[in-house]
Amino acid sequence: MNWKLTAVASAMAIVASVGGASAAGSLNIYNWGDYTSPELIKKFEQKYDVKVTVTDYDSNDTALAKVRAGGHGFDIVVPSANYVPIWVKEGLLLEARPDQMSNFKNVDERWVNVPWDPGRHYSVPWQWGLTGIGVNKKVYGGDINTSAIFLDPPKELVGKINVAPEMNDVLFATIKYFGGNWCTSDKEVLKKVRDKLVEAKPKWLAMDYSVTEKLPAGDYAGVYYWNGAIMRSRLKNPDIAFGYPKEGFPFFMDSVTILKDAKNVENAKLFMNFIMEPENAALISSFAKYANGIKGSAEFLPPEMKTAPELSVPAQFEKAGEFLTACPPEVSQLYTRIWTDVNK
């Protein structure tokens, strides 16, 4: 039993040594997993002599639940657009006034007066993207700028489709497909939505996240998924093409916010200002492969991103895109019911 005792003792020693590194110059970032450029963090640490800790989450709801419970110790969190108003309403965010910071002039006008944070009193753009269509052109050569790719799939694609396992993104596209408005509670539209999804699901292969692996490899031939991932797939396999559903597709944007109970508010503000610098914003994008909202960052991007058709929406489809907003509770309850029905 001695080896076990030694193991316990050494484990305890390690436990004691880990943890509790809250020096004066520190910053705790709570962000989506695999989303924060290590280079960006290193640069910030060196410039301001601040020790940065990054912790991951994998869904908006997890992040919200954790921060709401308290005692989390985070300073910065990066919620999606539709969640920012919830965070504000629940009184979790600090009104940090990034719009008065020196680098705010670099923010693209398009992203200043956004519906979830008019005038940007709370949040700074991190990255944005959209959910669209990716198709292997060798398998299907028809029109791919439509949600019909996954809702009424052409026979070449049946059984080879992957759909993002995201309730809101899928319902958004389907509601738009029937001409409804997002957050509608119109029973007639919703009935069509449910019936269509129930009918379409057997024609899908999966609802999974592994698109950058399986779309280029040929396991999937059509996907409804995030543009950054489809761009990565195309870089691995040039047969992949990107389509913008003309019936309507959702934009997303994740924004950097400071928590009301943050312990390192000054460092957090420094970080906000820091990422509005074009060169730094480019670091974010080149790591995670989505567009940022900062003017002048393009010239610092790797060449394959500058010209990527997935990252710049053509004018003709601009109107079809819309931000996913947070629906009223009674509506989102309806949506959950539909989703459960579809996945039973």
Binding site: D34, D56, Y209
Partner: peptide, 24 residues
């Protein structure tokens, strides 16, 4: 672990969970 961890306490599985959405 995902719910109990404090700042800077990612374990290997929670780290991978974060990666799963993007690319492994």
């Amino acid at each position: 672990s995902e719910f109990v961890k404090s700042g800077g306490q990612d374990t290997l599985p929670t780290y991978m969970l974060g990666q799963m959405r993007r690319e492994i």
